[in-house]
Simulated assay, not measured.
Amino acid sequence: MPQQNPAKYVAGAGDIETTYAYDGLGTMEDPFVVEFHEGDSENPMNWSSFRKWAITAIVTLSVFAVTFTSSAYSESSIELMQDLNMESEVFILGLSLFVLGFAIGPAIWGPL
Rank of each mutant, 00 (worst) to 15 (best):
T60C: 14
L93G: 04
V10C: 00
S88R: 15
M81R: 04
P106M: 10
L25S: 07
L112N: 10
P6G: 00
S77G: 08
S77D: 07
Y9N: 12
Y22I: 02
G94H: 14
G24E: 07
A7S: 11
N85Q: 11
Y22D: 03
P6C: 00
T18R: 09
Y73D: 02
A7K: 14
G101T: 09
I55Y: 01
F64T: 15
S41K: 08
W53M: 04
V34A: 08
E38D: 15
A11H: 03
E29T: 08
S76N: 14
Y22G: 01
T56M: 15
L84Q: 12
V99K: 09
L80A: 03
N5S: 02
S74L: 03
R51F: 15
P31L: 07
D83H: 06
L84R: 14
S71W: 13
A7V: 13
A11C: 07
M1C: 11
E17L: 06
P31A: 09
A57P: 00
S71E: 10
D40T: 10
K52C: 03
S62E: 10
A57Q: 02
E75W: 04
Q4P: 05
Y20A: 05
D83T: 10
P31Q: 11
A57T: 04
L61K: 02
L95Y: 13
Q3V: 10
D83C: 04
N46H: 13
P106N: 08
F50Y: 06
P6Q: 00
V59Q: 02
T69W: 06
A7L: 13
V34G: 02
P2G: 04
K52Q: 06
S74A: 04
A11R: 08
L97Y: 14
Y22V: 04
S62V: 05
L84I: 08
E89K: 12
A54E: 13
W109V: 13
F68P: 01
L97T: 15
N46L: 04
K52N: 04
T19Q: 05
T56L: 15
L100N: 11
L80H: 03
I78N: 07
K8S: 13
M1E: 13
S71K: 11
G24K: 08
G39S: 03
G101S: 07
E87F: 07
A13K: 07
V90L: 09
E17Y: 04
A107M: 15
F68E: 12
D30A: 13
S88L: 10
F64H: 14
I55C: 02
S62Y: 10
G14H: 12
Y9S: 11
E89P: 01
M28P: 05
L93R: 09
T67C: 04
W47V: 03
I92V: 11
I108S: 07
P111Q: 06
T56H: 13
A57G: 03
T69K: 06
E42C: 03
M86Y: 01
W53T: 02
S70L: 14
G105M: 00
T18K: 08
S76G: 11
P44A: 09
I108E: 00
T27I: 01
L93N: 07
